[in-house]
Design a protein around this nucleic acid. Structure first.
Lengths: 234, 234
DNA sequence: TTGCGACGAATTGATACCCAATCTATGCAG
DNA sequence: CTGCATAGATTGGGTATCAATTCGTCGCAA
C-alpha cells in the first residue's frame, strides 16, 4: 500500500462493493478521519481518488456522497462493458490455450455451485469475476483497468434494484460464451455478450427509493484495520 | 471550475497536451505551489488527480513525475482505443443523420487544410479531434470519458518519437472511414480503424532518449492564470 | 397554520506551520 | 576511484486555524 489515502480509498471501495456503503450515503470528512484515525487531509485525498473512480460524488461546500447512478448511467456503463468485452472477445476467440479455456469453465462451475447453495453474495462476486477473468486474458492492463473500474461501478447499480436476477440464465450465458469463443465464433459471441448485458440492465427496474441505509461509520467498521495494515477481511 | 486543484490539474494537463511538459519532468510540490500561488496541499490534490488519469506517476518519497510510457504502454493504449472506436463504429454505422456525417467530413477538411499549411500542432490536435468527435456521436458519456483519457495519454507518446507521421495517409483513412460508416459497412470500418491505429503505433519508434527538456516552471508559465480564472490561453 | 427572514451551528475549502522518514548529494577517508 | 557518512532537501502526514457556504432552527408576520 503506497499512501495512507490509498488504503482508505480501497477500504471504502470494498465497503461499497460488499454492499454496506449505499448510494447517497454521506462521507463526512471528520467522521472518516475519526473512523480511520487519520487527519482530514488524508481523507480528502482518498475521497478525490474515489471521485475519479466514479464511486463518490463531491457537491461543493456540501460534502462527498456515495454516487447514486441514474438509469442512464446504468445503460451507459453496461454499454461500455459490452464494447470492451466484445473487443476482447474478438481478440481471444480461438486463440487461447487449453488451460485458459478450462480455467474459464472452472470459474463458471464455481459460480454454479454458489448459486445452488444460495450464497447470493458469492455468486454475485463470481459473476462479475467471470467477466474480469475474460478481460484478464486480453493481457492488456489498460483495458483491464477501465473494465474493472466499470465493474466497480456496477456494484452501485445493484443497490438500486431489488429484482431477483435470473442467475441461471446469466450463468448459462457464461458457459455458452466460453464454448463460442473456443470455437472461434466471434460474431455469435459478441451478440451473446450484448444480449447478456441487456438482460442484466433489464433487471434494474430502478426501484430508486428504498435503499438500505447505514451510516458510514457502521458500514466501514469491518474494513478499518485493513486500511492501515495488510489483508482484507471479507 | 469546482476546486482549485481541478484548475491546476487541467492547467498541467494542457501543458502536457501542448507538448510543453515532457515525460520525466519532475513536478516538485513546492515549485508548483509557487507557480500557481497555492498551498502544497492543493498541489498534492491536483497531482493525485493527474495520477489517476495516468499522466503523472508518483514515486514514493521521491516525488511526482510526468509519466514516461513504455512501448508496451503505447501498444496497449492504442489497442484500447481500437476496441472503443470499433465498438462505437458498430453502433453508429448507417445510423447518423446527414448533418452528423457532414460534420465529420468538415472536420477532415479542416485537418486537411492544417496539414497543407504545415501547421503541425493544429493538425495533430485535429487528428485526435476527429476520433473524439466520432466517439461523441455515441452519446455515451462513460465511453467518451474513457476515450478522451486515452487520447490525453497519447500526447505523452508523441514526445517519445521524432518520426514524421504520414499525415496524408492517416487523413485519408479518416475520410474513407466516414464513407464506410455512412454506407453501413461495419466490418470494413472496423478493419480500417485497426489498421489506422497500427500505422500510428508503427510510427512510434521510441527514440526514448532525446526528450526536449524544460523545467516545470517554464513549461507551465502560459497556463498559470487560466488555472485560477476562466479562459484557456492556447 | 403557513410562509419568510435572520441568526447560529456545522461543514467544507484552503492555508500555514510543523515534524518524521526518506532520498540525494556532497565530501571525506581509504 | 570507491565506499561511506553526514547534511540538506523533499515528501508524507498531522494540527490548528480561518473564511465561505450551507442548513437548520427560531421567531415573527400574514
Amino acid at each position: 500500500m503506497e499512501h495512507r489515502s490509498d488504503g482508505i480509498a480501497k477500504a471504502i471501495t470494498r465497503a461499497i462493493v460488499n454492499k454496506r456503503l449505499a448510494p447517497g450515503c454521506k462521507l463526512s470528512e471528520q467522521t472518516l478521519a475519526d473512523v480511520f484515525k487519520v487527519s482530514r487531509t488524508v481523507v480528502r485525498q482518498a475521497i478525490i481518488k474515489l471521485t475519479e473512480d466514479g464511486l463518490v460524488t463531491i457537491e461543493r461546500n456540501r460534502g462527498a456522497y456515495v454516487s447514486t447512478p441514474s438509469y442512464r448511467d446504468a445503460v451507459e456503463i453496461y454499454d461500455a462493458l459490452t464494447i470492451l468485452e466484445q473487443g476482447v472477445a474478438a481478440q481471444l476467440a480461438g486463440r487461447l490455450d487449453a488451460r485458459s479455456w478450462s480455467e474459464l469453465r472452472r470459474h463458471v462451475e464455481l459460480q454454479h455451485k454458489a448459486v445452488e447453495e444460495h450464497q447470493d453474495g458469492l455468486a454475485d462476486q463470481l459473476g462479475s469475476g467471470f467477466h474480469e477473468l475474460l478481460i484478464k486474458f486480453s493481457n492488456n492492463s489498460v483495458v483491464q483497468a477501465m473494465h474493472s473500474q466499470l465493474i466497480r461501478r456496477t456494484s452501485l447499480l445493484r443497490f438500486l434494484v431489488d429484482s431477483r436476477f435470473d442467475y441461471c440464465g446469466l450463468l448459462h450465458d457464461h458457459a455458452v460464451l466460453v464454448d463460442l469463443l473456443e470455437e472461434g465464433q466471434v460474431a455469435e459471441a459478441q451478440k451473446l455478450i450484448d444480449e447478456h448485458h441487456r438482460t442484466v440492465v433489464r433487471g434494474y427496474l430502478l426501484d430508486m427509493e428504498r435503499i438500505p441505509k447505514m451510516s458510514a461509520r457502521e458500514a466501514l467498521a469491518p474494513f478499518v484495520e485493513a486500511a492501515t495494515e495488510g489483508g482484507p477481511p471479507g
